[in-house]
Measured scan of single mutants.
Amino acid sequence: MQRVNMIMAESPGLITICLLGYLLSAECTVFLDHENANKILNRPKRYNSGKLEEFVQGNLERECMEEKCSFEEAREVFENTERTTEFWKQYVDGDQCESNPCLNGGSCKDDINSYECWCPFGFEGKNCELDVTCNIKNGRCEQFCKNSADNKVVCSCTEGYRLAENQKSCEPAVPFPCGRVSVSQTSKLTRAETVFPDVDYVNSTEAETILDNITQSTQSFNDFTRVVGGEDAKPGQFPWQVVLNGKVDAFCGGSIVNEKWIVTAAHCVETGVKITVVAGEHNIEETEHTEQKRNVIRIIPHHNYNAAINKYNHDIALLELDEPLVLNSYVTPICIADKEYTNIFLKFGSGYVSGWGRVFHKGRSALVLQYLRVPLVDRATCLRSTKFTIYNNMFCAGFHEGGRDSCQGDSGGPHVTEVEGTSFLTGIISWGEECAMKGKYGIYTKVSRYVNWIKEKTKLT
């Protein structure tokens, strides 16, 4: 034993070699072989497995989906700052455009905790909710729209109204504003409101030439003092309507412009014939205590009207009353817009006519005020429907199939267009061939041609 100890002390290297040989010859039971080890760690190889990531292109799944990435790591994937920024906006807080917040056709661009709407022409605001041009839906104005110097929408209202708090709607500024039905039992019968379409306001006024200088022999019209197929109006439903009495009662109609003036057809009036105007009328054979009678003290036909040349060209006249009318729910003026808007309103496509005229061709006159909704007829169809001249200051309205029309005794009465609950004068009943005849239409004086003249002559002093 002493000898062994001496050998170990003198030859430590020998001992180490012996131990190493023993270990190498022993069977290893701690580690699995290569094949079995792979069965336990069965993990798919990654895209760049075996390579240094710093030297390969980034992978979106590896960089940002398996674990949260930084902007720089995302930049490695896209290799483009702009594309990385677009991805980053949604990656950080989701897609803010998912709810489609942009209105009126706006395009949404996502941002971090926010979004941006790219608005089409005519709109602005956070969600493109603000109209900035009158060309689109009248700028959301209830009545009139004008573009300011910086191309912003400025709404306005006709006389007797003021802008509401929203700067879009119009509200009454006087007790009985024009064009409004205020009798409670008839307010439910107000005709369907007309909503502004998209309009090209630059070209809204037709490029028409008034044929002022045409000389033409007097034409022989049949029954051209021209509501057939209409309905009984309720008291106060058309408070701007008046009836004219002269040699015979209810020979023509008219509309209240203001307390002192009536507008009617020029062919209705004769110099030297006494005319009485009755406002607030409903049943011409009954006294309903809503009527107001006034005498006409002055007749002003349009300066281009000449019955000797043509009885229905420039067929418009103004009547001055001896005493002002007292405005109330049964006696209310009709609204008159400017030339541009009167023309736009007419193009809405349908209007209402009213009167006490004959209820059928050569038949009896109506006792109760009649009204009828009539569609506008395109000019080409209008011209083809008659052998008589249709001037540019006239328009056609009615039904091709016949059966409904204005008729004798309705002449001078109103053709009105309702705009968001307020009625505007767009025409004056003038003439036609018979009444409600198939293929024939009622012919009306186009008020847009005469609004400046009306307003100039009827100013209240």
Score class of each variant (00 low, 15 high):
Arg3Pro: 10
Ala9Gly: 14
Pro12Asn: 11
Leu19Thr: 05
Asn42Cys: 04
Lys45Ser: 05
Tyr47Thr: 14
Asn48Thr: 14
Lys51Ile: 09
Asn59Gln: 13
Met65Phe: 12
Glu66Arg: 05
Phe71Pro: 08
Arg75His: 14
Glu79Cys: 04
Glu86Gly: 14
Cys102Phe: 00
Leu103Asp: 06
Gly106Glu: 00
Cys108Phe: 01
Lys109Val: 05
Ile112His: 15
Cys117Asp: 00
Cys119Thr: 01
Gly122Cys: 00
Phe123Gly: 00
Lys126Met: 06
Asn135Met: 09
Arg140Val: 05
Gln143Tyr: 02
Gln143Lys: 01
Lys146Arg: 11
Asn147Gly: 14
Thr158Leu: 08
Cys170Trp: 00
Pro175Ala: 13
Pro175Thr: 09
Phe176Arg: 05
Val183Met: 11
Ser187Tyr: 11
Leu189Ser: 13
Leu189Ala: 12
Arg191Pro: 15
Ala192Ser: 12
Val199Phe: 13
Thr209Gly: 14
Ser220Gln: 10
Phe221Ala: 12
Val227Lys: 10
Glu231Trp: 12
Asp232Tyr: 15
Gln237Val: 07
Phe238Glu: 01
Val242Met: 01
Gly246Tyr: 06
Gly246Glu: 05
Asp249Tyr: 05
Ala250Trp: 06
Gly254Gln: 00
Asn258Pro: 00
Val263Pro: 00
Val278Ile: 05
Glu281Val: 14
His282Tyr: 13
Ile284Leu: 15
Thr287Val: 11
Thr290Gln: 10
Arg294Pro: 01
Ile297Tyr: 05
His302Lys: 02
His303Pro: 09
Asn306Gly: 03
Asp315Thr: 02
Asp315Cys: 01
Asp315Gln: 02
Ile316Gln: 00
Ile316Leu: 07
Leu325Ser: 00
Val326Met: 13
Ser329Cys: 04
Pro333Met: 02
Lys339Gln: 14
Thr342Pro: 01
Lys347Met: 11
Phe348Ala: 14
Tyr352Trp: 05
Trp356Met: 08
Trp356Asn: 03
Val359Lys: 14
His361Cys: 04
Gln370Ala: 03
Val377Gln: 08
Leu383Asp: 06
Phe388Ser: 11
Thr389Lys: 07
Met394Ala: 08
Phe395Leu: 01
Cys396Lys: 02
Ala397Tyr: 02
Gly398Arg: 05
Gln408Val: 07
Asp410Lys: 15
Gly413Thr: 07
Glu418Pro: 11
Val419Glu: 02
Gly421Phe: 03
Leu425Phe: 02
Ile428Thr: 02
Ile428Cys: 01
Glu434Pro: 14
Gly439Met: 04
Gly439Phe: 03
Lys440Arg: 10
Gly442Ser: 10
Thr445Ile: 06
Tyr450Phe: 04
Ile454Leu: 07
Glu456Trp: 06
Glu456Thr: 11
Lys457Val: 09
